[in-house]
């Protein structure tokens, strides 16, 4: 049996919102250590890797490993019915064909229960474990979201170049071109505003703007995003959870 209680429904809402426009359904793999998901979008360009560690939950138990096939659109509709501040418990028997979703209002004496029909999802898993990284950028997630949105107005591609002391985001299209350069910055009073850039090799990569638009839907999950780049490899965009992460692996574009 699986039972996981979130302190606030808002966390699961944000996770599902960040995933549902990229993949319509995916398997949630539940073990005694927590819940993980790997899912790839239909075009096989963007991969989502989610880890919700046991410590994220107020209460968690999973007696036997369970795989829950979940339609994210339907899941989103049901969890949208709870208030952000509600306790949210997910519950499934070992051979369940439904997932129980329970909201508890912390002020009123009110409990709401829903059941989500589970799906049988046959998806292959990709081997993504070992990756070298040539450059790592950590910046405020809201800043990264704004850069992606602004550059998308110009082109369907965003070029990221990283040198020793700066990262440059640029786009060029029919109406013109634009660029944003960021440099490392330490803000002691507001550490969430700090920017770090570490580099082993200079980077020059281009990514599809429409996939970046999907990635930045995770912005509300974390004040920071970490971008790991390696020449001619997928970029990794990581949003940390209180205990765990939501990562996106995005295949780069190639120049002709």
């Amino acid at each position: 049996m699986l039972e996981g209680k979130f302190e606030e429904a808002s966390l699961l809402k944000k996770i599902v919102e960040a995933m549902k426009d990229c993949v319509s359904s995916c398997n949630f793999n539940c073990t005694e250590n927590g819940i993980s998901v790997q899912a790839v979008d239909n075009s096989r360009v963007l991969l989502i890797s989610l880890l919700i560690e046991k410590d994220t939950f107020e209460e968690y138990r999973c007696d036997r490993n369970i795989t829950l096939g979940i339609g994210l659109g339907s899941f989103s509709k049901i969890i949208g019915n709870g208030a952000n501040s509600d306790y949210l418990t997910i519950q499934a028997e070992d051979d369940a064909d439904t997932l129980g979703i329970i909201f508890e209002d912390k002020v009123k004496d009110k409990i709401s229960e829903y059941n989500l029909k589970l799906l049988d999802i046959d998806a292959d898993l990709l081997e993504v474990d070992a990756m070298e990284t040539d450059a790592t950028i950590t910046l405020p997630s809201a800043d990264f979201a704004k850069i992606c949105k602004d550059m998308k107005t110009l082109s369907e591609s965003l070029q990221i170049t990283v040198t020793k002391d700066s990262a440059k985001f640029q786009s060029a299209g029919e109406i013109g071109s634009g660029s944003v350069v960021i440099k490392p910055k330490t803000d002691i009073d507001h550490p969430e505003e700090s920017i770090t850039i570490s580099l082993d090799k200079p980077i020059d990569l281009s990514f599809g703007s429409k996939y970046l638009s999907d990635i930045i839907k995770a912005t509300s999950l974390s004040q920071k995003v970490t971008i790991k780049l390696t020449e001619d490899s997928p970029g990794v965009f990581e949003y940390k959870l209180p205990s765990g992460y939501l990562r996106f692996y995005l295949a780069p574009k190639f120049d002709e």
Binding site: V40, S43, R44, V45, L46, L47, D124, L125, L126, E127, V128, S157, S206, G208, S233, P234, Y249, A251, P252, K253, F254, D255, E256
Partner: peptide
């Protein structure tokens, strides 16, 4: 011109 690569080029299926 530029084209979009697939993740399949980089990751093998488990």
């Amino acid at each position: 011109m530029s084209g979009q690569q697939s993740l399949n080029r980089f990751f093998s299926v488990k």
